[in-house]
Design a protein around this nucleic acid. Structure first.
Lengths: 158, 158
DNA sequence: CATTTAAGGTTCCAAAAAGGAACTCAATAG
DNA sequence: CTATTGAGTTCCTTTTTGGAACCTTAAATG
């Protein structure tokens, strides 16, 4: 998580990426849509390119103009971004609901995100996922132990 | 997305919530695990409680001691957090891989997150989801139009 | 009784990041 | 020759962080 946040964990980066998924590619468009200062936008785009999340390519040569596109790495942020957006739509909407709805293309109905296990296809909730130390590594990280195992410790019981 | 980021969009909040899902509940534990300054931690916890993502409850009265737990709202961030963690594990791991692995409890195998449609159960990728203006709202937001419709504009097509 | 320990914070000041507005550069349009 | 567009930089002010010390309640120790 710390690694992920080092790349996308600041006030603007996820908004930039969200706009990328909506088709925005150009500096001026990001700037006018987000209201971020040009300075910060320039910095964030440069870092995203350096991290491999976006790539910069010329879309014309005279005059030289550049655009930013999601790489394969960037495209794989899609599930996380969808879930974050839908969480906000669900819990933080004002009276009228979200301004945009997600649609499942090819099916035509509304798209509601759901987390499943790629191996067995089951829908999973928070209590269905637990963690284990990577056997390939020495134990670098001590898990907290306040009398419960970590897999149940999040529960509201008590 | 802007609404979501107003709640969870800073350098520390998602790390705090990740630790919540790992069973951490107490101020001191967050502080020692994350290395965040007490000042910032105090501020973030207060804001998360105010937003309804965490709740503060006493776990003993003499001396008074408090702990922080995920609410229903907070628990629903689980899919987003899982996806973010797995994205980092996949794209940003050093040579040895992630320190922790996710396990599908009750199945016993590794858990690999996958985004599906809650309506029809299909696995969906970036190109399967599109957006439409909420019909219940006037069109407040102009989508970018650089010669493509937004649903295909993200594609790498040349 | 004075001291120490523990949890859960505040306060204060220096350093880093973000906001705002103007300026640059290259090329094309009028 | 002047204005415009796209994509940035530069400079300066305001906000946020980081670091370290201090405070409070209450029990435990000597």
């Amino acid at each position: 998580m710390a690694r992920t946040l080092a790349v996308i964990g600041d006030r603007w980066t996820l908004l930039i990426l969200r706009d990328c998924f909506l088709g925005v590619r150009r500096f001026e468009r990001f700037q006018e849509r987000l209201g971020v200062t040009r300075h910060v936008l320039s910095d964030r785009l440069r870092k995203l390119v350096a991290a491999g999340v976006l790539e910069k390519r010329a879309y014309q040569e005279r005059p030289p103009r550049e655009e930013y596109r999601l790489t394969a790495m960037g495209l794989e942020l899609h599930p996380a971004i969808i879930h974050l957006v839908q969480w906000g739509d669900r819990w933080l909407s004002d009276d009228h609901g979200a301004p945009l709805q997600h649609i499942h293309r090819g099916r035509g109905h509304r798209f509601q995100a759901q987390l499943t296990c790629a191996d067995c296809g089951e829908v999973v909730g928070p209590r269905d996922v637990t963690v284990a130390a990577n056997p390939a590594l020495a134990q670098r990280l001590e898990l907290p132990d306040e009398g419960r195992s970590p897999d149940t410790a999040w529960q509201q019981g008590g």
